[in-house]
Simulated assay, not measured.
Amino acid sequence: MADQALHPALADRPTLADETGIPRLLAIMAALRDPQTGCPWDIEQNFATIAPYTIEEAHEVADAIAREAWDELPGELGDLLLQVVFHAQMAEEAGMFGFSDVVASISDKMIDRHPHIFGDESRDKSAAQQIKDWEEIKARERAAKAEKGVLDGVALGLPALTRAVKLQNRAARVGFDWPGPQDVLAKIQEEATELVEAGDSMDHAHQTEEFGDLMFVMANLARHLNIDPEEALRLANAKFTRRFRSIEAALAADGRRPEDSDLAEMDALWDAAKAAERA
């Protein structure tokens, strides 16, 4: 796709007007961070304050894909790309690295992790074998970083369910795993029973701990069933939103709102929305 036409607001900024593509975006970010002439908000930011926006933008990309909102996807991907540029600009100002180092790093990694494309290995292997080879390469990379523990290198900033699955996958590689889903289901029943039975006698911190144990085992069940728990919960959230909006619409047709109804009526409307979806 050709570069977009120059934005009118940049017409009187020659250093930006001469750039296109990625160089243009880098120049814009540098201008925003300029200590003398930049944006006060952008200047005040640091890695820690920008990190939550990075996570948020990644989720918004996933949301656009889930909704198949292809017209929104270029903008969402642009927002995510800006996060990379923002971090790279701050790193360059601190003398740590620059955007070109980010690009070189991922380019080298992709070449190193695909020896069946860029090296001498045969491309004639199954997807499962390629995944196994990929994990072996990553294990060597972790060893080179002196990450010797099985669980070393699993990022703390991942969504909790995703991180749980990654931790469990690592442990499973060395044999620390339940044999199958039925064993996990039995553990879920055990954890749920303990949470319910001891609920009244637990303090909040203990309840939180027990609930976390239950969620962790639920993530393990998802792993055994080859289900992405984050995706499953996103779908459940979408279903809940869809059906509750049906309740609101049904009540609005009668000139009422949910607070003007009661649980029995709303539950019946929920069942009607569910039946309509299945039909």
Rank of each mutant, 00 (worst) to 15 (best):
Q36E: 14
S105P: 00
R242N: 12
S126V: 01
E135M: 10
A252I: 01
D112G: 06
M218R: 06
V165M: 04
V217M: 08
R223P: 02
T37V: 07
R142I: 07
R278Y: 09
V196T: 12
A160R: 08
R242P: 06
E248C: 13
N46P: 00
A238V: 09
H116G: 07
R242Y: 13
R243I: 14
I117D: 03
V184W: 06
E197F: 12
V103W: 12
H87I: 14
A273R: 01
D133V: 01
D120V: 10
M202G: 05
F244L: 14
E248S: 07
A91C: 09
Q129E: 14
A30N: 10
P14H: 01
G212D: 06
Q129G: 00
A94D: 11
M202P: 06
I131E: 03
T241M: 13
A51N: 07
E197K: 09
V61R: 10
D262M: 04
E259C: 10
E135N: 14
T20N: 04
L26W: 02
V102A: 07
I65N: 01
A58Y: 11
A11C: 05
Q182H: 10
K148G: 13
I117E: 09
P23Y: 07
L10E: 06
L269P: 04
F211I: 11
P14G: 02
L32Q: 12
A252C: 04
Q45Y: 00
D254M: 09
L25W: 03
L82C: 09
V165D: 01
G98N: 10
L25A: 13
F118R: 08
R67I: 03
L77I: 14
A219T: 02
D228N: 13
E248Q: 13
S201V: 11
K145N: 09
K125E: 11
A276V: 11
A146L: 11
E194N: 11
D133M: 03
S107Y: 08
Q36Y: 11
L269Y: 05
F97D: 01
F244M: 14
D120C: 01
V165Y: 04
H59G: 15
A64C: 08
